[in-house]
Design a protein around this nucleic acid. Structure first.
Lengths: 113, 113
DNA sequence: GGAACATGCAACCAAAAGGTTGCTTTTTGT
DNA sequence: ACAAAAAGCAACCTTTTGGTTGCATGTTCC
C-alpha cells in the first residue's frame, strides 16, 4: 500500500469535498460541528436565516462528501463531524504548497547564479 | 492589525476559494500551474477533452477566486499560480482540525475519569 | 499584406444548485 | 390517546454552472 496509490484513489473524492466547503452556509455548519458535539437539524437551523429544509439539503451535501455523518436518534437525526475528508484535502494542499515552494527555491537559486 | 481581524476579513473570500477547487478540471489546472511556470490557455487545454473555451471559463473561475493570475503577453495570455488564497484556506482547515482534536482530547480525558 | 495562431465575446443549452412551500410520517411527553 | 416537535418527501422555481458552437479581434511571422 504505497502512499502514492493511496492519494491516487483518494483523488476522485477530493473535488466533492472542496465543493462541499465552497458555500458560506456549509462552512458555518462545519464550524459548529467540528466543535465536537452532535447537533440535530433543528439546532443547526438556529441562527441561520434559511429554512430547516434548506439546512437539511446543505447537511446532505456535507454528508455525501463524507465530512459529516448522521444517525437517527429518536425523532431527531444528529449530525456529527468526520475529520478524515478534511485531513485528506489538507494533505493535498500541502502537496500543492510544497510544489510551489520548490519552484520558488529553484527560481531563487537561478537568480543567484 | 490583529490575527483575528485578518481572518475575519478573509472569511468571506474562503468559500469562493473552496468552490473554485471543487471541480476536477480546475484541480488539474491548479496541479499544473503550481509547478511554477506560467502557461497559455492553449497549452493548458492540451490533455483535456474540453474545448479551449471551457478551459478559459475554468481559468476565469480560478482567477476570480484569486488562485491564479493572468497577464497578456503578446497574442497569448499566460496564467500563473498565486499561493496566498490556498495558504489561507490551509490555515482555516488547520483551525478546524485543531478544534476537532481538542474535542477528542477532552472526550478522552472524560472517559478516563 | 495575409495566413495562421491565440484569444475574446456572445448566444445558447441542459443540468445542477440553492431556495421555497406544503403535506406526511415518526416520536415524544402528558 | 393526542398535540406538538422533528424530520422526511416532493413539487416547484430561479439562478448558476459547465459546456457547446460560431464569429470577431489582435498578433506573429514570412
Amino acid at each position: 500500500m504505497s502512499h502514492k496509490r493511496h492519494s491516487r484513489v483518494a483523488a476522485k473524492r477530493r473535488a466533492p469535498v472542496f465543493a462541499a466547503l465552497g458555500d458560506e452556509t456549509r462552512l458555518s455548519l462545519v464550524a459548529r460541528l467540528c466543535a465536537g458535539q452532535p447537533y440535530s437539524i433543528a439546532e443547526l437551523t438556529q441562527g441561520h436565516k434559511l429554512t430547516r429544509q434548506a439546512i437539511t439539503k446543505h447537511l446532505r451535501v456535507l454528508e455525501r462528501a463524507g465530512i459529516v455523518h448522521s444517525i437517527r436518534r429518536g425523532r431527531e437525526s444528529r449530525f456529527e463531524f468526520v475529520a478524515e475528508p478534511i485531513e485528506a484535502i489538507k494533505e493535498y494542499l500541502d502537496l500543492v504548497s510544497e510544489k510551489w515552494d520548490q519552484t520558488l527555491t529553484r527560481l531563487k537559486s537561478f537568480v543567484e547564479d
